[in-house]
Computed example of a mutant assay.
Amino acid sequence: MAGAAALMGAGAAGAQTRVPVLGEPAKALDTPALRGNRMARAFREPPAGLAVPAVRVERREGVAPLKLQPGLTLVSLWAPWCAPCLHELGDLAKLQEKFGGPRFRILPILTAPREPITAAEAGYLLKKHNAGVFAPVIDRGADSKGLFQALSVRETPNGPARPGLPCNLLVAADGTVLARQFGAPMAGMVNGTGEGGKVTAADVAKVGTLWATFDGEALMSALSKGEIAGGSGARSRPLVS
C-alpha cells in the first residue's frame, strides 16, 4: 500500500482495500491554515448540487425527519459490515469530545445495514468501538439506504460510479454538502500479517487514522470555529425535511 496517507475502504465482505482519491480537492477547505493539511486534502469537491435528502432517522426516542443543527456538521456514514467505518469511529468520538460545540459537531449515521438493526443494537456497536459519546442514529430512508444511495455514490477508476463506505461529508446547516471524503484515512502504511498477506483489524489498529493526528485535530479545530473558504458555515439555516 503506497503513500503515508493511504485510504482504507470496505469491500463486499468488509475486507480492507485501497480507495483511490478521485476528484478535485474540496474548495471549502482551501484556506491558508489548511493548505498542506493531509486530512483536509483527503476531502474532495462533491458533485454539484449534492445535498442531504429529506429522510427519516431512528434514534432511541423514535423515528423522525432528520434535522441538522446550525453551523457545520461532519456527517459520517457507517455500517456494521464496514470494518474501516468501525475502526475510525473511536477517533471521531475523541474529536467530537474535544471540538464539538454549537458551531460544529460530528454526526455518525448508520446506513445500508445488511440485517435489520435497532437503535439499542446500534448503540451497543458504538460503545464496543469506543464511540459511546455518540447517540445511535439510523437511516430509515428507502430500504434504510436513503443516505447511502444519495450521498455515497462516487467515481471508480474502473467501472461505473457506485456507493461505498466509509463516507464522511462536511455539511452546512441547509443540507448542502461542502466536502466529501471516502475511506478510513490511514496515518501510515499498513502491512498485512494475516493469511496470504491479508490486512487484519490488528494491523490497521497499529497504524491508526489521520483523524488521530495533528492534521486531523487542526482540521477539526478550524471547523469548530467555522473557518471554511467562502465564509463561515455557522449561520442558522434549518434543513427542510
Rank of each mutant, 00 (worst) to 15 (best):
E58P: 05
E58G: 03
E58Y: 03
R59I: 12
R59K: 13
R60S: 15
E61M: 03
E61D: 09
G62Y: 07
P65I: 11
P65R: 08
K67G: 05
K67Q: 13
L68G: 14
G71W: 09
G71T: 07
G71A: 05
L72I: 07
S76R: 08
L77K: 03
W78A: 00
W78H: 00
W78F: 01
P80W: 02
C82Q: 03
C82F: 04
C85V: 12
C85E: 12
C85M: 09
C85F: 13
L86G: 10
E88G: 07
L89T: 07
L89H: 10
D91E: 10
L92E: 02
A93L: 11
L95V: 05
E97K: 04
F99P: 01
F99S: 05
G100N: 04
G101R: 11
G101W: 09
G101A: 12
R103C: 15
R103T: 15
F104L: 06
I106M: 00
I106S: 02
I106P: 01
L107P: 03
L107C: 00
L107G: 02
L107T: 01
I109N: 01
L110V: 02
T111E: 04
T111G: 07
A112V: 00
E115S: 05
E115D: 11
P116S: 12
I117L: 02
I117K: 00
T118Q: 14
E121M: 00
E121D: 01
A122R: 09
Y124T: 11
L125M: 06
L126A: 08
H129R: 08
H129P: 04
A131R: 12
A131P: 04
A131D: 09
A131K: 12
A131G: 14
G132R: 14
A135I: 11
P136T: 08
V137W: 01
D139T: 01
D139M: 01
D139E: 02
D139N: 03
R140H: 07
R140N: 00
R140S: 06
G141C: 09
D143W: 08
D143Q: 10
S144K: 15
K145R: 15
G146P: 08
L147W: 04
L147S: 01
F148C: 00
F148R: 01
A150T: 04
A150R: 03
A150Q: 02
S152Q: 00
S152G: 03
R154H: 13
R154G: 13
R154D: 14
R154F: 14
E155P: 00
T156M: 12
P157E: 11
N158A: 06
P163D: 11
G164M: 13
L165Y: 07
L165C: 08
C167F: 05
C167W: 08
N168H: 04
L170D: 10
A172C: 06
A172R: 09
A173L: 11
A173P: 13
A173S: 15
A173G: 14
L178H: 12
A179S: 04
A179I: 04
R180W: 12
R180E: 09
F182W: 09
G183M: 12
G183K: 12
G183E: 10
M186D: 06
G188S: 10
